[in-house]
Design a protein around this nucleic acid. Structure first.
Lengths: 337, 337
DNA sequence: CCTTGGCACTCCGTACTCCAGAGTGCCAAG
DNA sequence: CTTGGCACTCTGGAGTACGGAGTGCCAAGG
């Protein structure tokens, strides 16, 4: 269907359009890439590519620009991920090594990725499911309120306040705390629900209501909340693009955790790069943006995802290289901590 | 210098310009406000106002727009803070009451304020200086690393990892933890540095280096880090404004914690509203934005600040009302927890 | 001394036309 | 299948004209 030269033409169109942001014509194409044929020949090829839906022209008698389908073919078959330069690698290292905290790792990562790609970076907090409980703390706060703190092996600390609605004696709290630690210490988070189910039986009946409240909050905290937390950076990089009308939509999407979740997509292997181009991600208002995302984590197991959002007219090889490199490095950092 | 009618003219110009976003002329002015005089008279007044620097015209033969100085006079003398409507108050209540967490309070507050004012909201995390230590936890994490967790009375949890560079026995850790809690529990954060200074003497000399590392991290955590944390929301509200060239600058400023700190300004009384108009805040790129900020906290003591950033052409009375109301309500929430 | 109507003037924004340039599609020849 | 030629289309910028809004000034009136 598409011979080698037509594919070369498509690649050249994508590359030129990405770098110049202007529709590219047949003459410019033969000038900048030595294709060894004349503009007229290119025009014939372009007509075929257009008929098949890989490129389009904004107006009659303008150059061609790639369609989403064209970018898709480019990403899948015509490009190779561009490795980062040495200075870039070094920047990643020095920047991320300074982090002292999970929060800090995430916030540094997102800023780093935004700077590297000059686009909007999005990072999801690592999931806890693969880590274990290291310690549970239960502290009275004010009259009828407790603070529950769970410390996990990957350095994460989750906290929640709990309304008890009745006064609780210090003894009861101490007892409950001891019970929790005895039962949960060292346990993988995935096993927590089972372990928790057995606990109420061991609590004196007076404290049952309080224990129930604590346990339900504990489950909520570990199982649900943290999965959703996502941060972004680099919104300023959108401004110099000519988004104009849809800029507002994009900014709105970035402030919606749920939307960002869907954008980053399902967690898979750590190493897999996902690219969603234009209308491939269903969201209204993100029709002209692409997302390059990857899982990151320890070993092969992805803990969460991170990625970059930019215009469909994006440097895919470079962006993919940056996302992959950062994802790997963050994985190493997390493994070491 | 400026008689009552000239002030009324200035007020009318500000109000009209804010609502229409177009330079306002003498005829439109007498039509919309019943000033009881003719356009020619208004023109004379306008000439005076312009000479004094309160208004300016974009071009000869265009209407007038307020200058920063004009807005300043308007805010100081010509406007009264607009109280929120009942539905708005109710929205604040229901929205903020659902929060279960300090993080949650802050993130809900910032989104609420952005929505109420349809501008960019900025909220600083509450300072810890007025609260007390409720509990200190020290947990081994991996081989040569400790996790320090400090729980404070206002429900905040601070965490940091510490490199020890040597192996530490569980006994040493337990001892150090007991020591920390004995010495710091219930102490106001302001007093912590003094209390900490006395601790090393009570540690066996073998553990001195580790203790020193822990204490220095403890001080850092409580005294420095948390003061800087600031979040924002509502960037999408900037898009529909015609910022165009400076939009990038504004977005960049919003991602710089330090810049946001300076924007919110010094903490003063809880109840004081601060308004910085245009060039009054020295920052490049924020020349055409204004900031309305207020301290919030428990009682009269401000713990931190929150505010709104928008174009100088802003509804000051409405924005000030929203900021004041939200600040008060957040104070109540914090006092109750 | 302030206010008012009249009037000439300035300038913006829009609409319109015109033209060059870039790019295309098609065709016939190699 | 490739290529040069050619007529055609469309965009974008430059130039021009013009209505409208608004001003500043002046002289008259209260």
């Amino acid at each position: 269907m598409l011979d080698d030269r037509k594919l070369a033409v498509l690649r050249a169109i994508v590359e030129d359009y990405v770098s110049t942001n202007e529709p590219v014509g047949s003459k410019a194409l033969v000038d900048r890439h030595n294709l060894g044929v004349s503009p007229a020949t290119i025009r014939n090829d372009m007509a075929v590519l257009e008929e098949q839906g890989y490129i389009a022209q904004p107006h009659t008698s303008a150059g061609r620009i790639p369609t989403d389908k064209g970018y898709r073919l480019f990403v899948d078959r015509l490009s190779t991920i561009k490795p980062l330069s040495t200075p870039e690698r070094r920047a990643i290292e020095t920047f991320l090594n300074g982090a002292y905290d999970l929060d800090d790792v995430v916030s540094r990562t997102v800023r780093l990725l935004a700077q590297l790609t000059r686009q909007v970076a999005v990072v999801q907090y690592p999931s806890l499911t693969r880590s274990s409980v290291r310690h549970v703390e239960l502290v009275p706060v004010g009259a009828q309120r407790l603070l529950l703190v769970v410390i996990t092996t990957n350095g994460r600390v989750e906290q929640r306040t709990i309304e008890t609605f009745t006064d609780v004696t210090d003894d009861s709290i101490a007892h409950l705390r001891a019970l929790l630690n005895a039962s949960l210490d060292g346990r993988q988070l995935g096993e927590v629900p089972l372990a928790v189910a057995e606990l109420p039986a061991q609590v004196p009946s007076v404290d049952r209501p309080v224990a129930a409240a604590v346990l339900s909050v504990l489950l909520e905290t570990l199982v649900e909340k943290h999965e959703e937390k996502i941060v972004f950076a680099g919104a300023a990089n959108l401004a110099h693009l000519d988004f104009s009308q849809s800029l507002r939509d994009v900014l709105e999407a970035l402030e919606e955790q749920v939307v960002l979740m869907r954008l980053l997509g399902e967690a898979g292997d750590s190493s897999t790069l996902t690219v969603r181009i234009g209308t491939e991600n269903q969201l209204e208002g993100l029709r002209s943006t692409s997302v390059v995302a990857a899982g990151y984590g320890v070993g092969d197991q992805a803990l969460a995802r991170l990625g970059v959002l930019g215009p469909t007219r994006m440097d895919y090889p470079g962006t993919m290289g940056a996302v992959r490199a950062v994802a790997r490095y963050v994985g190493q950092i997390l493994a070491g901590s």
